[in-house]
Design a protein around this nucleic acid. Structure first.
Lengths: 218, 218
DNA sequence: TAGATTGTTAATCGATTAACAATC
DNA sequence: TAGATTGTTAATCGATTAACAATC
């Protein structure tokens, strides 16, 4: 067990850009493009070629001087970095509306995210069928996570109970939480948290609309 | 019509933090806290007091030396900045699964976002009832936006048709697009775009889980 | 080989943090 | 007034961009 958390420390800004790179490279591959230079790709993606090369070079020399990057190879390397070549088992916690929609759309693009179970603590929901999954009681969560090698818990419960449920998750051996609850979670280092706060996103849009209007007011 | 888009230019980093400030201040207000210092608030939010004060001072002197900030006042000022004291009319474009869930959950926290209509170009969906809204044909969108002073279009259509639909939206007088389609949109300056790419978010989580494991491998 | 384009170092820019004078 | 805490300037840090030597 190495204790060196600093090695290979990649900034969040760079990690955030990786999925977008993957998306464009996948499209290029689909279109049959074999090779591409940083200049071409950066122009398509509207970023600087410098940033593109800097970003990629954090992970290794994926290109070749005088040639550029092989699209398929680069795409695959980024896919690997993002764990897209492995399977990831998930559970959804919260069988409400949002949980349902995620249950039905989880395996997007044949990426390896596999929904293994749905949990809820509402007696009225437990036992019901959501897209082929029988909703289970929260009591069973801990055992289920262990037995099914669950990696990620998707939190789609109201913010009131989110912190308590998240704390309970700490002892189950989960590796990450995809948090749709509208609250911040305070997890130990060994559990990664990715927040999706939809209302925050809508507010940012609202801010920018406002701002544009102010700056262009008659 | 001023042409000076530079005035009051606030960085995206700061704008991104505003909804979180609003969230914490709303909680404090609910808890009956009257005043708070930047040091206290920053400690609760796990940011630096310096950043907090710098951020707020981009918008005005909301505090008072020797006293701190009045929670209700500060909360209200940030709410105003984010347009939370005004009504915003929306339409959802795409009556599929995701459109449905958003339709049912749009008016979160009594914020002023009001869903006015749902549109789709699938004949099988047009005319159906989603949470009290009869799905309309895309032909009617342009007139509807004008007549109902629609500000924001929520795009929940497959990526294949997203760019075409977005281009059509340019001429309707819409101010912003909340884009759930998994593709980048290229809009003119007068239309703000906020992307929600859920699969990107999940990939970032997957990356960080991977990274943590690598750095702590046996 | 000559031309192209990367990988990488150096320069710039912007965002965060620290410090402190202003002031309630 | 004295103490507290802001608003704001200055210092630091990190991220982006530019430049170019290495190399395919």
């Amino acid at each position: 067990m190495s204790n060196n958390e600093q090695e290979n420390r990649i900034s969040q800004a760079i990690v955030s850009r990786l999925p977008r790179y993957l998306r464009y490279l996948t499209e290029l591959e689909t279109d049959g493009v074999e090779r591409i230079s940083s200049r071409e790709l950066s122009s398509i993606m509207r970023v600087t070629a410098s940033q593109l090369r800097q970003d990629l070079n954090n992970f290794g020399g994926f290109g070749q001087q005088g040639y550029g990057y092989n699209v398929s190879y680069l795409r695959d390397e980024i896919a690997k970095l993002l764990g897209m070549n492995d399977e990831h088992f998930l559970v959804i916690i919260g069988g409400g509306r949002f949980g349902k929609i995620l249950a039905k759309n989880m395996n997007f693009n044949n990426s390896g995210f596999v929904l293994k179970g749905i949990f809820d603590n509402d007696e009225a929901v437990i036992g019901t069928d959501i897209d082929g999954h029988i909703v289970m009681s929260m009591d069973k969560l801990s055992d289920f996570v262990r037995e099914n090698r669950i990696e990620i818990a998707v939190l789609t419960i109201p913010k009131e109970s989110a912190k308590a449920v998240a704390n309970g998750l700490c002892r189950t051996g989960i590796s990450g939480i995809w948090n749709f609850s509208h609250t911040d979670l305070d997890m130990p280092d060994n559990i990664q948290v990715e927040n999706v706060h939809l209302s925050d996103s809508l507010m940012r849009l609202s801010y920018r609309i406002n701002e544009y209007r102010k700056n262009h007011a008659g």
